[in-house]
Amino acid sequence: MSRILIIGEHDGRQLNQSTARCVACAAAINSASIEIVVLGASSNDVASAAAALAGVTGVLTVRTAAGSPALAAVLAPQIAALAAGYDYVLAPSTTFGKDLLPRVAALLGVPQLSDVMSVLGPRTFQRPIYAGNALVTIEVPDGTKVVATVRGASFKPVGTGPVAPIRAVEVSASLPTHTRFVELRSGKADRPDLQTARLVVSGGRGVGSAENFALLYKFAEQIGAAVGASRAAVDAGFVPNDMQVGQTGKIIAPELYMAFGISGAIQHLTGIKDAGTIVAVNKDGEAPIFEIADIGLVGDLFEIIPEIEKRLR
């Protein structure tokens, strides 16, 4: 029976929910064990949270230099060394996993699958190509380690289960010093996280300015939603890059996605295809977003948002 290793994503203090989505993907593969490796967490909470996830059979912790953030060049050799005992190495298809896993795969000399969206068999997977306009089925031949990133929006995070044992492991790998962390500038406010939120309010070019986005933030706060944006809104400087939803931004699957002033370029639609309900509000009745919206309303967002707020009060 095969063994699965998942690379746990965290910010030092907390386990990222993308890890629980990887576990859901791993659970669909018929394996003997599912283990999570946590590298360089400053808090024990990360490993504890990983150990509590349903289906996880063990957690490995690797100590790295204190407070050192996750750098692919530093993590990859350690994971490649650990991978020897496993048949599968999975990581979330977040910027963390996308940066790291191909480096691991190349060190192992095996190809990588990106953005696995469904498990069709223990070695057969489906993934999107061409911004999700086609799906491709890929089989990994016997004897080749499966190295894959997992498209989070395709898998519901697992809940908690019996607590798995945690053990510290030593990894012998020579770590480079050629890559150094300087700083992280986070645009994050106190709003819910875009990638895990149940409700998302999103704005596009039609919002018009950074100042006008205040209208969306206020409405989002009223209903407890996260705030996203189209590429056009980010490019125009209305909002920071971490709010971008779409092919090259975040792929999300909230229960409700409300798009205001977003025309709906195919690259944006790729990022919201898995949403439960899509609402579109746009002045232009011909906007492509209406082609996939569950509920569409043609009109001026600056009039409609305050009206919705009034009715929800």
Binding site: N133, A134, V140, I295, L297
Partner: peptide, 20 residues
């Protein structure tokens, strides 16, 4: 190539909902 591509599919389309 190591991986075997066995087939290509068109993704399920989200059907158009209603307008209010």
């Amino acid at each position: 190539p190591v991986l075997r591509v066995t087939r290509y599919d068109t993704p399920p389309v989200r059907s158009k909902g209603g307008m209010v």
